[in-house]
């Protein structure tokens, strides 16, 4: 089963269905800024986000543009499955660093110390009210993640499904996004065999 669209974002690579969007280089912050500019997003809130939220919003942007082109109802009938291993660890470490250094804490940092906040930012940007599930997994394509995707598709409200893998900590970052449409009901437990395509 092939997704309708898939994007990949990692050092040197930002593609939609294998076609380059940008070539992000440098630190994660520099690389993510390059991707933001390449997408011409004009979304000032982006600059206030933590690294995980930026990564989620960026990698999802191309596939959600495809979804809109295909007539998807992002507000009511699109679900999000968010997967990650490190989650919000970058913000966790920063929150604790500030706490130890100053005896206080930063509200702007603390609000990002939950793994699902990137999905929250995504739902705000695209006005998505449907279900979203945030699972912490060692790898992007586990049997548990595929089961969760099938279950989200069982929700009678859901016709479109976006699956995200976002992982960022220190100098490493990696993200994938896929869009599945309403054509395949996914009732067969053998499907999908993979959430994220192995090819670029």
């Amino acid at each position: 089963m092939k997704p309708l669209a898939h994007s990949r974002l990692e050092p040197g690579v930002f593609t939609l269905d294998g076609t380059p969007i940008a070539a992000p280089k440098g630190t994660p912050d520099e690389a993510l800024r390059t991707c933001y500019q390449a997408l011409a997003m004009d979304y000032p809130k982006f600059h206030k986000m933590d690294p995980l939220a930026k990564l989620a919003v960026l990698v999802a942007e191309p596939v959600l543009r495809v979804a809109r082109e295909r007539g998807a109802d992002l507000a009511g009938s699109t679900a999000v499955l968010a997967l990650g291993s490190s989650g919000c660890l970058a913000s966790d470490v920063e929150h604790w660093r500030v706490r130890q250094a100053t005896g206080l804490a930063s509200p702007a940092v603390f609000v990002y110390t939950l793994p699902n906040i990137g999905v929250g930012e995504l739902t705000i940007r695209h006005g998505m009210h449907g279900p979203s599930l945030c699972l912490m997994t060692e790898e992007p394509d586990t049997a548990e993640a595929r089961m969760a995707a099938r279950l989200l598709r069982r929700d009678p409200r859901v016709r479109w499904l976006v699956c995200l893998w976002t992982d960022i900590f220190a100098d490493r970052f990696e993200a994938r996004a896929v869009l599945y449409g309403p054509e395949d009901p996914w009732t067969d437990p053998a499907h999908p065999t993979a959430l994220f395509p192995s090819t670029p």
């Binding site: 507000a75 609000v111 990002y112 929250g120 705000i124 998505m128 009210h129 449907g130 279900p131 409200r157």
Partner: peptide
């Protein structure tokens, strides 16, 4: 059971 998002504010 079900879930829904506000799509309004993160905090």
């Amino acid at each position: 059971g079900a879930m829904g998002n506000d799509a309004n504010h993160i905090s």
